[in-house]
Design a binder for these strands. Structure first.
Lengths: 107, 107
DNA sequence: GATACCAATATCCTAAAGGATACCAAACGG
DNA sequence: CCGTTTGGTATCCTTTAGGATATTGGTATC
């Protein structure tokens, strides 16, 4: 793998999980909020417009599965099994972020 | 660690290494380009304005060290030892991004 | 002494991300 | 039926990221 390719993959990952809302949304769904309004309520301050867009993005990237049920009518969002593959990345990012806070507070 | 804290750390990490240029700049410096113009040349299409801003951001986050030499006058940028702590994050992101490309190409 | 290189900074501009608010049709609950 | 909830979409606006271009003050080169 050339460094350029590596950079491309890096940017891809940032594109898929980056931004303000994608990971909080995944967390909300993962912890049991399957309905649009429930997700919205569990991701404080997000607007319907942004939530709608982000859910589409996550669905296009196969991280979220959208299912429509009839009688009773309902739309359900679930995280896919594929989302599990993100765990190592997320874990490392959390660890680094935590350590970084301490590092920055140092004088 | 609560989930909210974890989310905060995640956002911190994204803030420090996210965006279009920070990781390409780190890579450029790491592979031997220490001078402003050299870095600019090795990160294609970046403008001086953006490079200058990003270098400051990286310096504030202790990933890059800026040294000024007199006689001959020169400014040198180096990646810090601390930057090494980013390697696991970067590695996971590259791996995931590579795998994701294949996943998305699947029908 | 003109020219060119260096590390930037200053202005101005465009594009993308995100936010506020209103609205909609379908279904549900009393 | 009437109000409410649901899963959104439509407009419009603000903020942030990033880009284009010119300029600066110092040094080195010719």
């Amino acid at each position: 793998m050339t460094e350029e390719q590596a950079m491309k993959y890096l940017q891809d990952t940032l594109f898929v999980v980056g931004g303000k809302w994608k990971l909080p949304i995944l967390r909300a769904i993962h912890s049991g909020n399957y309905r649009f309004r429930d997700i919205q309520r569990s991701v404080p301050l997000i607007t319907t417009r942004v939530l709608s867009k982000e859910l589409k993005h996550l669905e296009e990237n196969k991280l979220v599965i959208r299912t429509v049920y009839h009688s009773p009518l309902a739309v359900e969002y679930k995280v896919s099994d594929y989302t599990l593959s993100l765990l190592p990345v997320i874990k490392e990012m959390i660890l680094w972020g935590k350590n970084h806070r301490e590092k920055i507070r140092e004088k």
